[in-house]
Amino acid sequence: MASKVSFAKYHGLGNDFVMIDCREQGEPVLTPEQAARMCDRNFGVGADGVIFVLPSDVPEAQTRMRIYNSDGSEPEMCGNGIRCMAKFVSDIDASRAARGAIATGAGLIVPELQADGTVRVDMGEPFLLAKDVPTSLPTDALGRAIEAPLTVAGKEWKVTCVGMGNPHAIVFVDDIDTLDLAAVGPLFEKHPVFPKKTNTEFVQVLSPTHLRMKVWERGAGPTLACGTDATATVPHCPLPDTIDEH
């Protein structure tokens, strides 16, 4: 592995990443352990993950993403990470089209650079079949884990499981300020009912236009934002008739 690495730092709503161009090498230039050290906020660069821009291995995509979380684990993809990667590639390669597919472990994702410099991403449709998320939580007649009971830290929670190419557990709460995220987040992430671990969203409905969320990301812990978490949560709000579509 390289002893010196050129990198850039990008963030999406505070969800921050070290970006490394590996199109020439064709593979990540850091080991998972090195990436974890780089993400350390006291002794490294500090980030929620390290994203490697690789040449695509399928004809439909321009580039391919691999990402190591801050603990060195490798998720299928990352929503905010995709936005950061699209902007990073655009900044270093002027020939890149404004819209182009990126290959990920969850399939093709298509970000689109906007005129104002932001990046829009079609995250695809969430899927609810428990076996696909995956989770072994109790399911309804259609095989979905919706408001399924789960005991964590001596308390029963109602959990809705959603797949976005990565697993999500959504928990609606009455008062998010009373939630001890550092205590319960890891217990959800590593609970045996989630064989691939899980991202967990604790959500409070504030109004028809606002939800408040605290996120515990699989492999990264608490983060300021998460694209797939938001995408998974909104369609499954318990008050769909009172939540504005925007």
Rank of each mutant, 00 (worst) to 15 (best):
residue 89 V to P: 05
residue 79 G to C: 04
residue 53 V to H: 02
residue 44 G to R: 04
residue 66 R to P: 00
residue 84 C to Q: 01
residue 69 N to I: 12
residue 47 A to E: 04
residue 75 P to W: 06
residue 51 I to L: 13
residue 33 E to A: 03
residue 76 E to I: 12
residue 27 E to A: 12
residue 29 V to D: 06
residue 72 G to D: 07
residue 67 I to D: 01
residue 50 V to R: 09
residue 49 G to Y: 06
residue 52 F to D: 01
residue 57 D to M: 07
residue 62 Q to V: 15
residue 50 V to H: 07
residue 36 A to G: 15
residue 26 G to E: 10
residue 45 V to G: 13
residue 56 S to H: 08
residue 77 M to Y: 06
residue 62 Q to A: 14
residue 64 R to Y: 08
residue 71 D to G: 09
residue 32 P to H: 09
residue 39 C to D: 12
residue 75 P to M: 08
residue 86 A to K: 09
residue 80 N to R: 12
residue 29 V to R: 03
residue 71 D to M: 03
residue 82 I to R: 03
residue 92 I to L: 10
residue 38 M to L: 10
residue 56 S to M: 02
residue 80 N to V: 08
residue 60 E to I: 01
residue 28 P to Q: 07
residue 31 T to S: 12
residue 84 C to S: 08
residue 80 N to K: 11
residue 55 P to G: 06
residue 40 D to M: 12
residue 25 Q to T: 15
residue 57 D to F: 08
residue 45 V to T: 15
residue 66 R to M: 06
residue 28 P to E: 02
residue 84 C to W: 00
residue 45 V to L: 15
residue 44 G to E: 14
residue 58 V to D: 08
residue 55 P to Y: 02
residue 90 S to E: 11
residue 40 D to T: 12
residue 65 M to W: 02
residue 40 D to L: 12
residue 91 D to Q: 13
residue 62 Q to C: 13
residue 43 F to W: 09
residue 68 Y to K: 12
residue 31 T to A: 02
residue 74 E to A: 12
residue 36 A to Q: 15
residue 84 C to G: 02
residue 67 I to S: 01
residue 87 K to V: 03
residue 85 M to L: 09
residue 48 D to I: 10
residue 37 R to H: 07
residue 31 T to M: 05
residue 27 E to G: 04
residue 76 E to M: 09
residue 92 I to K: 13
residue 88 F to V: 05
residue 73 S to P: 10
residue 47 A to G: 10
residue 42 N to E: 15
residue 44 G to C: 11
residue 73 S to Y: 10
residue 52 F to V: 05
residue 64 R to L: 00
residue 32 P to S: 14
residue 75 P to V: 11
residue 90 S to R: 14
residue 63 T to Q: 03
residue 27 E to D: 11
residue 87 K to S: 01
residue 72 G to I: 02
residue 57 D to H: 01
residue 50 V to Y: 14
residue 34 Q to E: 15
residue 93 D to N: 14
residue 39 C to R: 10
residue 42 N to D: 14
residue 28 P to W: 00
residue 80 N to Q: 08
residue 25 Q to M: 14
residue 93 D to W: 14
residue 46 G to M: 04
residue 43 F to K: 12
residue 73 S to F: 08
residue 38 M to C: 15
residue 27 E to K: 06
residue 56 S to Y: 03
residue 66 R to S: 04
residue 28 P to M: 04
residue 51 I to R: 04
residue 83 R to S: 09
residue 50 V to E: 03
residue 49 G to E: 03
residue 46 G to S: 13
residue 53 V to Y: 00
residue 26 G to N: 13
residue 44 G to P: 10
residue 59 P to Q: 06
residue 32 P to I: 14
residue 92 I to P: 00
residue 48 D to Y: 01
residue 54 L to T: 00
residue 67 I to F: 01
residue 27 E to F: 05
residue 46 G to Q: 05
residue 88 F to R: 05
residue 89 V to E: 02
residue 38 M to P: 12
residue 61 A to D: 08
residue 85 M to A: 07
residue 77 M to G: 09
residue 53 V to M: 03
residue 52 F to E: 05
residue 67 I to A: 01
residue 67 I to M: 05
residue 88 F to Q: 02
residue 38 M to H: 09
residue 28 P to D: 09
residue 30 L to Y: 11
residue 33 E to I: 10
residue 37 R to A: 13
residue 31 T to V: 07
residue 91 D to A: 13
residue 53 V to E: 01
residue 71 D to K: 04
residue 27 E to I: 11
residue 85 M to G: 00
residue 52 F to S: 02
residue 93 D to T: 14
residue 45 V to Q: 05
residue 52 F to T: 03
residue 55 P to S: 08
residue 47 A to R: 05
residue 32 P to A: 14
residue 26 G to V: 03
